[in-house]
């Protein structure tokens, strides 16, 4: 068939059919990639955990060492996340509301922990506070233990999660500008009133989003905590470290049972994330209408 005999509409139809086919192929391959890379690992965790029945699964989770690991993880997260929450708000505030020299350097420094290996994050605290570290002799004199104890675990967790809240808030607050705050000030609000009644409601969902991401990482941190924890069972073992110990002891069912507990937490976090994200979008949409 020569091209001259094709009418314009036929060309169009052919192109559209080609597009539809390409589109279907792309969607199918996206599904395959998704199933292969993301769904299969989930499926494996669940099946391995339940291999010997629900009884063994429940027993592995309720075992005293697992419970104390869970408690330690929650405690470390409970200290690290609020610290980084306050830092994130302060950092986002000064970066987004003012212009000053060196701002881009400051933003780079805030992001720095993302490109440092977690193992190095642990290492630097060992060099500072370990028995042979800079402060080692002084700490021993005063009977303070940081490495191989809770403070070390908290420090390592804080380090790897420093950027999360700030990173979510900075673009959001930059977009919002300073007009509303200025209006509040002109109407006589003091600094705190302005923050509580104007800024905070505006950034609420972004804040929740950042905290959710921060919590996920804090709860799952492995490399950094592994360096500073010392792996003392029942004392300085977090949940991810407990998974490692069980796995290395060839107690696979118990390892996957505890892992599936962490997986459930991760899925819950994704739900929270989705929810806060949809609230941010809704807020943006309603702001656009006004």
């Amino acid at each position: 068939m020569s091209s001259a005999t094709l009418t314009a509409s036929a060309v169009n139809n052919a192109a559209r059919r080609g597009n539809a086919l390409g589109r279907r192929l792309l969607i199918i391959s996206a599904w395959l990639v998704f199933a292969f890379f993301l769904l299969l690992p989930l499926f494996v965790v669940a099946t391995e955990a339940l291999k010997q029945g629900v009884g063994v699964f429940v027993a592995s989770i309720l075992e005293p060492d697992a419970i104390s690991a869970l408690k330690l993880t929650l405690l470390a997260v409970g200290i690290a996340v609020p610290l980084n929450l306050v830092f994130g708000v302060a950092a986002a505030w000064c970066v987004s509301k003012y212009e000053f020299r060196g701002k881009s350097i400051l933003v780079t420094l805030i992001d720095l922990p993302f490109s440092v290996s977690p193992v190095i994050a642990g290492l630097i605290y060992v060099l500072l506070f370990g028995a042979q570290g800079f402060f080692g002799p002084w700490l021993r004199e005063h009977d303070i233990q940081i490495i191989f104890a809770l403070p070390g675990i908290v420090l390592a967790t804080v380090f790897v999660t420093v950027p999360f809240v700030a990173r979510e808030l900075i673009p959001l607050m930059q977009e919002q500008g300073t007009q509303e705050e200025e209006a509040a000030r002109l109407l006589g609000a003091n600094g705190w009133q302005m923050f509580w009644h104007v800024t905070l409601p505006n950034i609420k969902w972004g804040l929740i989003y950042g905290v959710v991401l921060c919590t996920a990482r804090a709860m799952g941190e492995f490399g950094a905590v592994s360096v500073v924890s010392g792996h003392i069972r029942g004392y300085t073992n977090t949940l991810p470290l407990h998974v490692e110990i069980l796995y290395n002891e060839y107690n696979h069912v118990a390892a996957f049972s505890v892992a599936s507990l962490l997986l459930l937490l991760a899925l819950f976090i994704l739900l929270l994330k989705q929810w806060s994200e949809s609230r941010i979008n809704r807020r943006k949409a309603s702001a656009g209408e006004e």
Binding site: W31, M219, G220, P240, A255, K273
Partner: peptide, 28 residues
Amino acid sequence: PGRKIIEAMIDLPFALPTAVAGIALTAL
């Protein structure tokens, strides 16, 4: 169909503790 599920689950590797990912992939 399933777009929302994929969209929500893309972040799973960030939410899942890396040790869990490690043993799951090893088993796989």
